[in-house]
Amino acid sequence: MAHSFRFLDDIAVADLAFKAEGDSVAELFRAATEALLETLAETSTVAVTWERTIEHASGELDELLFEWLSDLVYWKDAAGVVFHDADLSVIHDGATWMLAAVLRGAPVDQATQTLHHDVKGVTKHLYEVKQQGMHWYAQVVVDV
């Protein structure tokens, strides 16, 4: 199983954009999650002292990813944390996509963590989630 992401140069002049891909839906979600976590902070510099279990369900896969990424931004502000990683699974049950995740991180600490952007929100500008052959792709623009 494999996934990857890369930041895009010319999609959003004043903000940041990334393209994520994976060879399954779950791997796509992992790639997009890593991209957003790295946008916030260098994850290797963030300890694991905070944890939150998150579940979401949606009839639309793109909405599920949007809600999940928006959750990361919410917890960053509401709990004052940045993240080390997220252990997640995505399953398709009939007409519903379901995500279960454990989000891990630590309170913001400018002395020990390498911090990047204070993402204000995930946007739907040029947002897409699509399958091509055996691969899943997502393009996401985040407002910084």
Binding site: F7, D9, D10, A12, V13, A14, L16
Partner: peptide, 11 residues
């Protein structure tokens, strides 16, 4: 007003 993207500037 920006003329260069953040990604380009960082590079």
């Amino acid at each position: 007003g920006r003329t260069m993207s953040r990604a380009q500037a960082k590079k």
